[in-house]
Amino acid sequence: MPRTEVKIGGFGGQGVILSGYILGKAASIYDSKHATMIQSFGPEARGSACSAQLIISNEPISYPYIVSPNVMILMSQEAYSKFSPELASGGTLLTEEDLVVTRNLRKDVLHYSIPATRFAEELGKRLVLNIVMLGFTAAITNIVAADAARNAVKVSVPKGTEELNLAAFNKGFEYGLQLLKKEPVAAA
């Protein structure tokens, strides 16, 4: 896989940074790829905008910052307005269906959405919406192998919540696979 830049955006409390961390861990520890994550440093208290930047590549990563993201995972309206213009042409946009209204959606990107919060609530904990999004990402894009991501989820979430989180991952993953059957394959 060539250098692929990923930006994850949402508001504090949604697990944006943890999502980036799990993706990076999946790629670099369980999928023998290279990953570099940069946390945006700011007032990431609950409710405010925050983002994680991640680069995944088969080759060692020299330049550590993202320049033109190929994949975006957005979980808030603010993140959509702020970040989606930066997405590379031909890139993949993944949004939380109920939290993001994709106004003025760009024609040059592939867009997929998932009601991750609703699924998370059905599973019993709204908190796991970020892991639903991760499962969805693993299904739609090729940035990380599903099993590598599952391994990373298992070791990164609080002890005792592994099963719930894996169920959340699988929910997002299955939904993504179903969606792909209906829509064209994304070239991440």
Partner: peptide, 9 residues
């Protein structure tokens, strides 16, 4: 700061 806050394997 960049190296300090960068996360890698």
């Amino acid at each position: 700061e960049c190296v300090g806050h960068m996360i890698e394997r």
